[in-house]
């Protein structure tokens, strides 16, 4: 500190000294004075920084006192405090070993998890399963609004089904086979992952839910952000999945679209059994 300060620091101190001491004459101060001065400056800087933070930061105290929530979010908070708080904690901050913090997950995640019935979970398990949703559409939107206003995060585009109008299904199929088929399967029927986890079937998923899943990466799914799959490409993929969902299998009964496993079962259980009965009928046991 005392020995040869850098040039910049020296100039800085000189400036402050000039402000305080218009005479400008360099004069040696006592060591005690210098120390006192530094202490005062430190306290002042701390007060300044703290005050600025208190004024500009999204206030902790002010949020508790005067919640700046919209009407929908208030409704959502009421629902949250009733059904979600036990695992996700007050103000969605999360509870250790029970549920993660929801700050920053965005409304897209809430809409996906709640609309597909995955949340609220019935119990703690490897992976939440799709089931009939507990909340209706309005309540889902209110919950989403609450979480969105609480911590921000990704949001669904306004009208996902409308985006499908201009989608390129065959490009979506290409993207699906590159990005999705390795877990969800060629036919969208889902597949097994490690440790009892699984990629669910896409057959019951709505376009908005698929979009939400790609955007937020629920459970074991990776996030496909807008820099990986642009919104247009997401629409292409959704368009392909919708085609898979709606496709009437031209070949007849599809055996669950499991591929050769069920086909092999079918040839023994149906084809071979039919022919064995034919042979019994024709040749008998003489």
């Amino acid at each position: 500190m005392t020995s040869s300060p850098p040039a910049g620091a020296g100039r800085h101190r000189g400036l402050l000294a000039r402000l305080r001491r218009p005479t400008g004459a360099p004069r040696r101060r006592s060591r005690a004075r210098r120390r006192l001065n530094a202490g005062i400056r430190l306290v002042a800087a701390l007060v300044l920084a703290g005050g600025a933070y208190a004024a500009f930061a999204p206030g902790i105290s002010s949020a508790e006192d005067t919640p700046q929530l919209s009407t929908a979010a208030k409704e959502g908070k009421a629902l949250f405090d009733k059904s979600c708080i036990s695992c996700h904690g007050p103000n969605a901050q999360g509870v250790t070993d029970r549920g993660p913090s929801l700050l920053g997950v965005g409304s897209a995640a809430v809409e996906f998890q709640v609309a597909t019935g995955r949340m609220p979970m019935a119990r703690q398990e490897a992976q939440a399963e799709r089931k009939p949703p507990v909340f209706n559409d309005d309540q889902t939107r209110q919950l989403a609004a609450y979480i969105q206003e609480l911590g921000g995060g990704p949001q669904l585009p306004g009208d996902v089904p409308a985006m499908l109008a201009g989608a390129n299904t065959s490009k979506g199929g290409e993207l699906y086979r590159i990005n999705c088929a390795s877990c969800h399967g060629f036919g969208g029927g889902g597949g097994a992952l490690s440790s009892g986890k699984f990629a669910p079937s896409l057959m019951p998923a709505s376009p908005a839910q698929i979009y939400g899943a790609m955007l937020t990466g629920p459970q074991n799914m990776p996030v496909f952000g807008d820099n990986q799959l642009s919104p247009q490409e997401k629409a292409d993929v959704i368009s392909y999945v919708v085609t898979l969902q709606q496709q009437k299998d031209p070949g007849g009964f599809n055996l669950g679209r499991f591929g050769p496993v069920t086909e092999g079962l079918a040839i023994f259980l149906v084809g071979m059994v039919a022919l064995i009965f034919t042979a019994l009928w024709i040749a008998g046991k003489s």
Partner: peptide, 14 residues
């Protein structure tokens, strides 16, 4: 079987 039960739907496999 060929007429009623779908087998090897390569258009789905891609």
């Amino acid at each position: 079987l060929g007429g009623l039960v779908q087998i090897n739907p390569i258009w789905i496999y891609g």
